[in-house]
Amino acid sequence: MKAGLGVNGEYIYQQEKHLTVLKTSLFFANDGFIVYDCKGHLLFRVDSYGRDKGQLVLMDAHGRCLLTVRRKRPSLHQRWEGFAGERSEGQKPIFSVKRSSIIGRCGMVVEVLNNPGEEYQIEGSFGQRNCRIMNAGKESMAEIRRKVDASRNVVLGRDVFSLSLRPGFDGAFAMGLVLVIDQINGDDYVQDYKAEVFPTTDD
């Protein structure tokens, strides 16, 4: 059984994989991401400077476009769509992501458009770096967690986090979902981060 949408076979691993994701801007959502594998090699990068704010491109270490995510407008549920490679006019999306509800903080639903039976749920708090991508059987396929510096046993800031992949789950697809989650929850993230770094005090 296929464990997840295959965006690029190069990033489907036979063993569980732990990636390190660095968010390159703390106060303006989605300015960029850099992703490293467990050996410290650059795997993916996203640089949204000068790009349409409603569209992001996931690239490999050499700048090759792997996946484009684009906000669909209008959409009450903040629906986003994913396209293989660099999106061209008239190209059909390969997956879509939307909020489960238009009210308050909630989970998200991921539909794989060329396979109606393949669906995923995203639950948890991205702002707290604690969420999971689960398949229709409620099995965890990928997890986002706070990054821990094992040498010092210190939890790092939320600009650096871990993305763990279950064997067979495409890392490019998972990172594309991270981009969408960050876009949808970006305001929550910025407010939570500012509150953590600059707490208010009563006189």
Rank of each mutant, 00 (worst) to 15 (best):
V69H: 08
S75E: 06
I103D: 01
R105Q: 11
E86S: 11
L76S: 09
F83W: 10
K92G: 03
C106Y: 04
K72T: 06
R105L: 13
W80H: 04
R70G: 00
F83I: 04
V109K: 14
G90K: 12
R87M: 07
G107M: 08
F95A: 01
R71G: 12
G85A: 08
L76V: 14
R71A: 02
R87L: 08
R99A: 00
S101T: 14
K72S: 03
W80V: 01
R70M: 07
S96I: 11
R99S: 05
S88K: 14
V109Y: 10
K98G: 06
S88I: 15
G85C: 06
E89N: 08
T68N: 05
I102R: 13
M108K: 13
R71T: 00
E111W: 14
G85E: 02
K92I: 13
R79I: 07
K98E: 06
E89M: 09
E111Y: 12
M108T: 02
H77E: 04
N114D: 14
Q78H: 15
P74M: 06
S101D: 11
R105Y: 12
V110S: 03
S75R: 04
S101Q: 07
N114E: 14
G107H: 09
V97F: 15
R79H: 10
G82L: 07
S96E: 09
K98C: 11
G85S: 03
S88C: 12
Q91W: 10
L113W: 08
V112G: 00
R70F: 09
S96Y: 10
S88H: 13
K72R: 15
K98W: 04
V69P: 08
S100M: 07
I94T: 01
N114A: 02
E111A: 14
V112P: 01
N114T: 11
A84I: 02
E111C: 09
T68L: 04
Q91D: 15
P93W: 15
H77I: 04
I94L: 13
H77S: 07
S101F: 05
N114Q: 10
R99C: 05
R79A: 00
Q91G: 12
E86C: 08
